[in-house]
Amino acid sequence: MEKFSNNFLEKIKKYQKIIIHRHKSPDGDALGSQYGLFTFLKINFPTKKIMLAHEDDLNWLANFFKKEKNPSEDYFKDALIIICDTANKERIANINYQLGEEIIKIDHHPETDNYGAKLKYVDQNRSSCSEIIFDLIDTLKEKQNLKINAKIVNYLFLGILTDTGRFAYPSVNSDTFRVLAKIYQIKGFNAKDIYKLLNTFTEKDLKYRAYVINHYKQKDGFASFISKKNLSKKFNLSSDEITHFVSTLMISKNTNIALYAIYDRKEKIFRISLRSKEVAINKIAEKYGGGGHKLASGVKIKDKKDLLSLVKELESLNRDLRR
């Protein structure tokens, strides 16, 4: 981190325009790492023009992560591009990243694509990209006397919290708790507000969760839920809002692998979340154009035949696991 932080700071000082990206269909870590780094740079480099790039896909926790104006295509010229929490180019939100002058990659997924980054920090042994971002800005703070405030670490804490399954996933290690210990020392930080945000559900959320529990299929350790095309409309939830219920399928102690597929009426695709308790599933996700972690991956599929093919592959993987 020491060498990377030095090189990172040089790039920040060099460029006047900086654009920070995340992956498509963002989860808590994609948003937390992106917004945390954005806020840190805005506070400490007020003369720089810093923007967030996206695909106008922010509906989940929209009151916490305030929408920022998406940079125009012309704005990318001569800009430094920083891409957070994204393993491959197909997943980068806002394709205009290619128009930037230089790319920095910061990630914790297994590395499959460098997407032209001249500077990178990739460590798949870290629990989250937000954890890496905290180490980066904490190192810069110590060396350059820069500021870290509660707003920054609120974003990063939420990213760590969600990507570790509330610290239940195998990716959690001593580095995670070392970072958390430092976050808790930041003046104004209050973890209970973040927990309240994540653990408070609306009536329609609860009714939808009950629907998933009552309608998912489970056979010999493989759980699946494939939504009907009008399901989000029925529960008055957007496609983004109902993509975060995959964990519901993993509650059963009998479930080893889970597939959760939601139909997005606007894009006319299935958004698919995959989870596993032991066996790696990311290679299968990559085969269908997706990717992610060994035990948590995502895919977008247009053709239902491909979706059914994916289901069969996961069923086969689950059978092999049981032998």
Rank of each mutant, 00 (worst) to 15 (best):
D163A: 01
E313A: 10
N256I: 07
L198W: 06
I20P: 02
A93S: 04
D138C: 10
T255A: 06
Y208W: 03
I20H: 03
L197W: 03
T200G: 04
S252D: 14
A93F: 00
A258T: 00
A258N: 00
N236D: 15
Y288K: 05
L80N: 08
R322L: 15
G289R: 02
N6L: 14
L80I: 02
I301H: 02
K3A: 12
D56G: 12
E278A: 11
K283M: 13
N96T: 04
I186F: 01
K105L: 10
K312T: 12
A181N: 15
I301F: 04
H244F: 09
E241N: 09
Y169D: 01
N149V: 01
S247G: 13
I50P: 07
T112Y: 12
Y216C: 06
K204P: 12
K312G: 12
S130R: 05
K42Q: 07
R209A: 14
V153P: 08
R209W: 10
L80A: 07
V311N: 13
L158W: 04
F40I: 00
L198K: 10
I20C: 00
F225W: 04
L37G: 03
L180A: 11
S174A: 11
L52D: 05
A285S: 14
K187L: 04
S25A: 07
D138N: 15
G28N: 07
L161F: 15
L249Y: 03
S232W: 00
K304G: 06
V122N: 09
L158V: 03
L9P: 05
Q34Y: 00
F201D: 06
G28H: 09
I213T: 03
K147Y: 09
E55F: 01
S130N: 10
K192T: 06
N173Y: 06
S309P: 08
I251T: 12
K305G: 09
L156F: 08
F167E: 10
L41W: 03
K143L: 06
N199G: 14
A117L: 11
L61G: 04
K120W: 08
N173A: 07
Q98P: 07
L198V: 07
S72P: 11
S25H: 05
T112E: 09
W60Y: 15
L180G: 11
F38R: 00
F245G: 01
G291L: 11
I20D: 01
L317T: 11
E102L: 09
E101D: 15
